[in-house]
Design a protein around this nucleic acid. Sequence first.
DNA 1: GGGTGAATTTAACATGGGTTAATTTTATGT
DNA 2: ACATAAAATTAACCCATGTTAAATTCACCC
Lengths: 246, 246
Amino acid sequence: MFDSCFVARLSRYIDLNASEKAAIADLERDPQSYAAGTALWREGDDICELSIVHQGWALSETLLHDGTRQILRFHFPGDLMGASGIAFRDAAASIIAATDMMVCRFPRRALGETFARHPRLAALFFSLSQLESVDLSDRLRALGRNDGKARLAHLFLSIAARMRVVTGEHKAEVRMPLTQTDLGDAVGLTQVHVNRLIRQMTEEGLIIRTRSTVTLVDEDRLIELARFVDRFSTIDSSWFPPSNTV
Amino acid sequence: MFDSCFVARLSRYIDLNASEKAAIADLERDPQSYAAGTALWREGDDICELSIVHQGWALSETLLHDGTRQILRFHFPGDLMGASGIAFRDAAASIIAATDMMVCRFPRRALGETFARHPRLAALFFSLSQLESVDLSDRLRALGRNDGKARLAHLFLSIAARMRVVTGEHKAEVRMPLTQTDLGDAVGLTQVHVNRLIRQMTEEGLIIRTRSTVTLVDEDRLIELARFVDRFSTIDSSWFPPSNTV
DNA sequence: GGGTGAATTTAACATGGGTTAATTTTATGT
DNA sequence: ACATAAAATTAACCCATGTTAAATTCACCC
């Protein structure tokens, strides 16, 4: 069978049977590649497809009337992209490749068919979508009630946590090809202030930053500073309906 | 049949058949009442139930280590509460009644059964959960990239939009029994600064505020100021599986 | 109908982060 | 090697918002 990132991701949470695996892998065919920096789609585009990240990672962003930008979330291998816009005809946000990527698109209707044939997968998709809501809530709390340093710490930790799941390693150094402008747009600060804070955090022995990496030098202190909680480790599947072998 | 808020809410988006209506109404039995200000549950509680709001409204909040508070979202009649915590055993946020409320609780497992019997409802629940994600993204953008006045304007407009759906009226005056502290905790400002901004907005002829209401005096200007988009009007159901009459 | 605590209002002052702009470093292509 | 553009660094200055604290108003209860 085709080696599916999505199967790997979902298998972290429940044991999929062969029929479910086949249904999921079926969504992840015909991989397309995108170079770092290119847009998979733009805010307002008429998109009727969803995408699974196969390799690389992306960010979802929205532009404000005055030209400023807010980065809404990050997408890693095994993530479903475009779901948040599924209630609309037009995309609610742009998706930009942060690294070179491989992505598999499939039509919305295929999701509907999966829901019909595999209710347990529907429950899993629902749960994962709620996980993302909680992740967004965590970021909302950080933007609403934390100062700049804690916001940056939170961002570094959350990206590191997701990357480490993908690589299967737990190294202090994490690849993070984001500019200071990107970081600022993610946590609601200016590029100049991000620069100031990174300098401070480096002097304090919290991190080391290069253009394309961060090293979490004192991860315990970062976690303490940001009150970081990793939400993506497990989920409660006790309420799921039984699997369907059709 | 029992008069179900949830049926009414979901019927705004798709035509439910009798079997689907029965399944939904079945979730909304045994209403319980809560007085304004009481907690339906607290962050960390072991909750294995979901709740449908029947009357009144609630807010979902989380406390930070230093005692500050972030209000994450608001829940109106016809809303499903507790879904965002469905991936966890313990509640990720507290729910506090903003007004006197009637609420119907049901176990998570009942949702799983609904997913199994009515795939079209599963698709609808999934879509609505994505709508909430987009709503959260909108708030994230507001906190990250708007100044205090625009954040408050956004909050007033979004609560008003949801309340008006419930009441079926479109009046400029909207009931909003929130303190200035509550407003600040929702948009990431201090109570003192909320007070300053409300005075300014009043002087500018944007709003009139009493303890338990806001009047949107110049709604067009508020919408312009906050770049408000109402996300909850319709959804794309074209990809849904067919309804199941079982 | 006066007492009480919560909510609001206001003021003085402090600061985190924004703005602007100039300079330096780095990556990349030729 | 050099040219070029993007990214990072740094500095000076400013403003939106935070902090603290006191005074006032409001809602509600005995």
